[in-house]
Design a protein around this nucleic acid. Structure first.
Lengths: 171, 171
DNA sequence: AAAGATTGATGTGTCAATCTTC
DNA sequence: GAAGATTGACACATCAATCTTT
């Protein structure tokens, strides 16, 4: 661990700060608006969307966790809460008795249907409408270049979303 | 609230999903690496950076909250913890006795100095190095277009980071 | 009353430990 | 023992309420 570090130059710093700002401001605002209109968090919303699009409106927990970029632990807590609210039920998997399905209920589906238009408007208002189509396309190209390597790195890790010690140690 | 919603088209959806992925994967990974190397969260880090760059290594709580895009409440809890760790002290403002300064201590400064190189490397490895200079520049241009309107909207709001009821109702 | 700031209750995320089935 | 999944303890964020000074 040498002391000579390459600091971020101006565009690098602005890109990085921009990402921080968007994370802090955009996501929290969308969360607030979604919550105010429908008592849903973005995490809830994402789970509902995934389940609503899945065959039979059901999905294995591990698959659901992967699709919603969540750790198994987080998803488990979250689905637990959603079961408490009656939006989801749990079913055991017949072919592999370790496995569990999360199943979307009708009330859960209705909550999603009711929340979707408002949430979509929020996303347009605060994100899409602020950018030109070219800029949107640029984000669509650039962001996966950052996300995909992390996806691979974390997905390759057996025990959920945990840091890779090798990568950590490496300079 | 009409039922006819304009769904996101393909680039719009990819941009939006990309942002979600980056938020989930990049920030959590950086947080984990920072924590593993230095027992610091990104929120801690940001506060330490702000204070270290401020005149006399001190800053008013409200200003610090604004600079680190945090709500006053969050910052207050956070600084409270950091005081407990000996990284920061609190001082009352002589000219306005409602006000408080957060002041960086020497131990706090040393923690930051020790953590910075590793964190910087993480940011390079997972973000900057994945992109061409053009792509970095594009992010530096595009992201503020999303962040600034939110900054204005939320900053204009007297009581911290709260949603604007008008905006919520509209649309 | 408004601004500066803190507090406490509650909800959610994280990590490590655990349990069951493969 | 590894995979699928859950649990409990703890850390942090959020919101509303509060307190003090202006």
């Amino acid at each position: 661990m040498t002391d000579d570090v390459r600091w971020l130059d101006d565009p690098e710093m602005r890109a990085w700060r921009g990402l921080i700002s968007v994370q802090r401001l955009l996501f929290e605002q969308l969360n607030r608006e979604l919550g105010a209109e429908s008592a849903l968090s973005m995490a809830d919303y994402e789970v509902l969307v995934q389940l609503s699009e899945a065959p039979d409106r059901r999905m294995r927990m591990t698959e659901l966790a992967a699709n919603s970029l969540s750790s198994k632990s987080r998803l488990s807590h979250q689905v637990g809460r959603m079961i408490g609210l009656g939006w989801v039920t749990r079913e055991t998997c017949p072919s592999d008795r370790r496995g569990a399905f999360a199943v979307l209920t009708d009330p859960g589906f209705m909550v999603l249907e009711k929340a979707a238009p408002g949430h979509l408007r929020s996303v347009r208002r605060h994100l899409i409408d602020k950018l030109t189509p070219d800029e949107v396309a640029a984000l669509a190209t650039i962001l996966p270049k950052v996300a995909k390597p992390l996806e691979r790195m974390l997905g390759a890790n057996p025990a959920g979303l945990r840091p890779d010690p090798e990568v950590l140690a490496s300079g």
